[in-house]
Design a binder for these strands. Structure first.
Lengths: 217, 217
DNA sequence: TCGTGCCTTTACCAATTGGTAAAAAACATG
DNA sequence: CATGTTTTTTACCAATTGGTAAAGGCACGA
């Protein structure tokens, strides 16, 4: 695959460039995550960034380039928790820790979650290759790892792929459907703690292998 | 609330009107569900419907009206399974049946699911009232029902609100993130059966109360 | 045959879209 | 302060946007 951005080569950006690029990306994250690619406008991004439209096009090669930049950055950070699931660790602990980190990320970075959701809902037109290469590899690798854990009896029998899907679904739901959650469950502080407990219980019950240290003998 | 459309009064639409309105709504469902409200264009809807743009505006009072019509229709059908969860039935059966129906709907109506997802992700700007009134009432009612089931020991202790959220999240995920699922799990026929089994196991394990007819004594 | 009411098209609009050219301003550095 | 470079603004542009006005078509009963 081609890298749109050069991490090994020197980006050598001036102070001003770094500051303004960050402003633009932050504004674009707001706008893209709320309206999707086509629904977002450069004028809106410019206004939100406090810059003029031509000035934005001085820093980025067009609307698409901003979107791609956001998506690239996002993917790397987004997949880190899954990547760090340790084959050497205790299987149930590793999975529960992954779930917990994923849920925490949804709470901390709801805009990123919605940006990603928007792109996927629209059929991933600007991210298809990204998915098929990087994500697919990681997904398959971790599926195999989970399958081996199941085989060794360290986890209850479970379909690894669908397990990962349901983890993503449940955790990201709190970010992507925030508007709905807030209407239906207005007390915010409680919601977060409740979500954590619920998600923890949901997956612990699913994954705990039979006869694994029953709490009520 | 005000009704945009008159269900009690006679809609009295001609053959042609019924046919063309259906065409327009179907085309609009495609476009809105893929691009969100702002990303959708009347020209695109018109082309997909096989009609001219002014002709579309002969049947609907503008882009917003089409969107609202779709959303109204959607909400009614979308909530039916939850509505039909029977207070008199066997709790675990009722919930598992609801989950199964919800998953089936996501498979059968992915466009509707994505239309709804798009609207919520964007902060539900054209559906806030709808959520706060109709949905909230139903949600609270069913939460109370589930809570009473838990109280009677018919279900394992669970937060009803978060339970419903996780049911929505997991089931809708297969529709909303279809593009991702298809990349990561290419064999389609198996995916559907696997999803059903996984979701069933996930929630059955969560909800089955302690000592409820253990399969492996 | 002629209306008449429903449907469709043609020809427009003003506003907004992503994007450009080039001048002007700000900045850095000798 | 003079000079070259980086950044920002001004003034545009063609294409697309949602929407309108008005003229045509079309079926159908009197």
């Amino acid at each position: 695959m081609d890298d749109g951005k050069p991490p090994p080569e020197a980006p050598k950006r001036s102070r001003i460039q770094k500051r303004n690029r960050k402003r633009i990306l932050d504004a674009a994250l707001n706008v893209f995550s709320q309206h999707g690619y086509r629904g977002a406008t450069l004028d809106q991004i410019a206004t939100e960034a406090g810059l003029s439209k031509p000035n934005i096009l001085y820093y980025f090669d067009g609307k698409a380039a901003i979107h791609v930049d956001l998506l690239n950055t996002l993917m790397a950070e987004w997949l880190a928790p899954l990547q760090e699931m340790d084959p050497e660790g205790e299987p149930l602990d590793e999975l529960m820790r992954y779930i917990s980190r994923k849920l925490a990320m949804s709470h901390a970075y709801p805009r990123e979650s919605r940006l990603f959701a928007n792109e996927i809902i629209q059929g991933a037109p600007r991210m298809g290759p990204h998915l098929a290469s990087g994500l697919k590899t990681l997904f398959d690798e971790k599926c195999a790892l989970i399958a081996s854990w199941v085989q060794r009896g360290k986890l209850a029998p479970v379909d690894p792929g669908h397990l990962i899907f349901s983890i993503w679904a449940v955790t990201q739901h709190y970010a992507d459907f925030e508007a709905q959650v807030e209407v239906l469950m207005p007390r915010k502080a409680e919601t977060r703690a409740g979500a954590e407990a619920h998600v923890e219980a949901l997956f612990r019950k699913l994954l705990t292998p039979p006869g694994y240290s029953v709490r009520t003998p």
